[in-house]
Simulated assay, not measured.
Amino acid sequence: MKQRTLAIAVAMSGLLLGGCASPLANKTADVAAVQTMEHNAQGSYNFDGVVRVSALHLPAKLTQSLDKDLVEEVAKSFSMDLRGAVDLKQSRLELVPTLRFARPNVETWLRVPMLLELNSLTMWVDASAFDLASPVLRGENKGKLIKVQAPQDKIKNLPIDAMLAELPRVTKNIYAAIDKKAYTFQPLDEQARQMGASYRIRLTLDPAAEMKMSKQVVIELAELAKRHSPDKQKEIEAMVKGITPLLDASRGEVETSSQTDLLVSRSGTLLAMVAQQKLGMPKEKELEVSIESVLRLSNHGKPVFSLRPTAENVVNFADLKRPAWLGGKNGAEDASAEDENTEHAMEVPAAEVSAAPIAKTKAVLKPKPKH
């Protein structure tokens, strides 16, 4: 009896789970991709990933003076690790980039963590990596976050939160503007299975499609600005008219194409983006750089932030004495300025000096006539 009850319970559980259809079920690849990106734009999550050069092809004229293999090996030895957190509802974005150089038995890296509060245009930066170059980051400021903030009286009327709330719609419009044929479903590979993906949607963009997407981004952001700044319609339109020709001109200098796989869970949550991008220069037909990247998303709905600014661990950038290499004054300049101030302080205004002492001084300093 117990075994029969257990079998019925298992069967019912399977039916219930099977009855919970995926929001992407029976969707075409383009609709599924647009829906996924729209949903992701309103979410909160942690992310981590890496960007690196996977191949480098140089023009023949450069390889005559450069060691082609050496240049390619150096380029492939660099990578950029990215991790952080996103919580747009709280208007917070954390980014921890790490520039890494790695060879067999040799590795070095540089990391600059930063936290942004978007609605107040405030940024906190951990600049500890530069404390040897800037003495002001040592001593009492050692390990403290540097706070940089826009003048609050200038931005208090900016509708930043309202604009962030519209980001899902903006994202939807950008991806929906791409040709439907650019989206295709792909079989799950081992990487997708390891991440728990149920869907693998590929977006393939040639140079023309990349340009179209870039222009759509400008259009959508301009429309967003217009909705929230009705008194600046002409300025925004002028800006768009100025940017569009620049984009067209850039295509003659640099062309990009890309292939991006969206790894999506059964519930329609974006788990990762795996991309391959090629950059070329039409004027240098043999020059081509291939870049590969992987970005994984986790802790959906409950992002964890590593930087936690407090009154005790923060120093305002305006309160820091900048080093000479950042435009500040070095010790010699400070001493010179101090001496100059001292001289000015000791000067006696001419109006307070009587004519008699002046005449007397001149008489004393007058050279004796030669005999």
Rank of each mutant, 00 (worst) to 15 (best):
A150E: 14
N341Q: 14
Q149A: 15
V71N: 11
E223C: 03
E333Y: 01
D126L: 07
A225P: 01
I201C: 00
K68P: 07
V314M: 10
R169D: 14
A208S: 12
V106S: 08
K283M: 14
M123Y: 07
S91Q: 13
R193S: 01
V148N: 12
V353K: 09
E352T: 12
V148A: 15
Q216W: 06
R92N: 05
R4N: 14
V353C: 08
F101C: 04
R52Y: 08
V31T: 13
N330T: 08
L307K: 01
A11E: 13
K241Q: 12
L224R: 05
A222E: 08
I155M: 06
G18C: 10
A192I: 00
M281Q: 10
K241W: 06
P245N: 11
N313V: 02
S198F: 00
A21C: 03
A162M: 07
Q194I: 00
R296L: 14
T269L: 00
A25E: 15
A7S: 13
S22E: 06
M163R: 05
L287G: 10
T28E: 12
V10G: 07
L320D: 14
K232S: 15
K366V: 09
V112C: 03
T260E: 03
G280Y: 02
E38K: 09
P135G: 07
D161M: 06
L145F: 06
E223F: 03
T171R: 00
M213Y: 04
Q3G: 09
W109L: 12
A9P: 04
E190V: 00
V31H: 03
Q90N: 13
Q216G: 04
Y183N: 08
S354V: 05
A350C: 05
G331M: 10
A11I: 09
V304K: 08
S267H: 03
G242Q: 14
A324E: 15
L287T: 04
E94Q: 13
V125H: 02
A9H: 05
L56E: 15
D87Q: 04
L6K: 13
S229I: 05
K283F: 08
D48N: 10
V106Q: 12
H300F: 12
V274K: 00
A182L: 01
L58D: 12
D189K: 00
N46E: 15
A162L: 01
A350K: 07
Y183K: 10
R322V: 08
A75N: 04
E338D: 02
M239N: 03
P349E: 10
L16E: 02
K234H: 08
R169W: 05
C20R: 12
P159H: 09
R169F: 07
G43V: 02
M281T: 06
I358G: 00
H371C: 09
E292P: 08
G14K: 07
Q216R: 11
K76H: 01
D206A: 07
M163W: 12
D161E: 15
T28F: 02
Y175K: 07
Q42H: 10
V96C: 01
K232E: 15
D126K: 00
V170E: 03
M12K: 03
E338M: 01
S77G: 12
F317A: 11
A29Y: 09
A75F: 02
H300P: 05
A222Y: 03
L205W: 12
P113R: 02
R193H: 04
V51K: 07
L307H: 01
K27D: 03
K89V: 08
K368C: 06
A182R: 06
